[in-house]
């Protein structure tokens, strides 16, 4: 049997396969180059970037939870300029699309960050992390308030010609409605889900374990919630959807694809198995061969 087609198209962004890495779980790519050939991936999504470097939160920043983990990294990053000068040249060597995840704490910062990244050679698409607080509006999280979300996406949309992916927060009442807002504000695609806010308490100290008190839950523990939310998002919008949340292997990835996601991202699994994302690609190939399907696109959105 000939090798099945794995290529997918996300708003004009052509991926050789639907497997990406989730932002914040794959560094700037180089950390994983020792473990597998990065050419195996559809896309690499890098750690969230801001205009100026961020130092991040105090420690402890992570704690394991049943089948998952909480993180409160605090968006530590090297800043857009250093990313472009020092990390992007390395990523340009690969025949893998590079998606820059970014954020800001004001609407202007989002727009400026998008502009800076759009001018850089080797950035193929942008992913906007809207799960951050807005300093101009009492630190309300952009992605949880419909009005703020609409505004930040509309303004950022105007500052870039690259495919703009909006990463949705799961910490909302109706994620389908939020996806619709993103679509109407000019997003080319949406990705979901970001981490779910959680907390762990040390009962002896009677204190939260994380220095930041709360953190974002990721890993297999959130998978059923993520699959349900991605399914709702797929029904709400026409633009492509990128699914993630607790994907450990190809079978998990297929749940998202069948629910309607055009692509998937592997996150926490990279920490447990450095070649997890490449293994998912291989697993998808085997599944298609096994099912006698010649094209991954014939699987997407086929939930009965």
């Amino acid at each position: 049997m000939i090798a099945p087609n794995l290529a997918v198209d996300i708003a004009g962004l052509k991926l050789k396969n639907p497997v990406m890495t989730a932002s914040g779980t794959f560094g700037y790519g180089e950390e994983y180059a020792d473990y597998f050939d990065l050419n195996a991936l559809g896309a690499i999504v890098v750690k969230g970037l801001s205009i100026t470097p961020r130092t991040g939160n105090p420690t402890p920043r992570i704690v394991e939870t049943p089948s998952g983990m909480l993180n409160a990294i605090g968006l530590q990053n090297i800043g857009v300029r250093t990313f472009i000068d020092e990390k992007l040249p390395f990523l340009r060597q690969f025949d893998t699309k590079v998606i820059a995840n970014f954020f800001g704490d004001s609407i202007e910062e989002y727009a400026e960050c998008a502009r800076m990244l759009s001018d850089a050679e080797g950035v193929h698409a942008l992913e906007m992390n809207i799960s951050c607080p807005n300093k101009q509006e009492g630190w309300i999280v952009f992605g949880t308030d419909p009005m703020t979300m609409d505004k930040v996406i509309s303004v950022t949309r105007k500052s870039t010609a690259l495919p703009l992916i909006v990463k949705l927060s799961p910490n909302v009442k109706d994620i389908g409605q939020m996806a619709k807002i993103a679509e109407n504000a000019g997003a080319d695609a949406v990705s979901a889900i970001n981490t779910i806010t959680g907390m762990v308490i040390d009962v002896r100290k009677r204190m939260p374990v994380l220095a930041n008190k709360t953190g974002g839950l990721s890993g297999p523990a959130i998978r059923p919630v993520a699959v349900r939310m991605v399914w709702e998002v797929c029904r709400a919008v026409k633009i492509p959807v990128i699914g993630m949340g607790g994907i450990m292997n190809a079978e998990d990835a297929l749940q998202f694809l069948i629910a309607g996601a055009r692509a998937v991202a592997v996150g926490t699994a990279n920490f447990i198995n450095p070649s997890a994302a490449a293994d998912v690609v291989e697993g998808l190939k085997l599944f298609l061969q096994d099912e006698g399907v010649s094209d991954i696109n014939e699987i997407i959105g086929t939930l009965r």
Binding site: G24, T25, F26, D34, K47, T59, R61, N71, I73, F271
Partner: peptide, 11 residues
């Protein structure tokens, strides 16, 4: 979490 420099958890 990762041990290889990717998660920024161990700083």
């Amino acid at each position: 979490a990762c041990g290889i420099g990717a998660c920024l958890g161990c700083v």
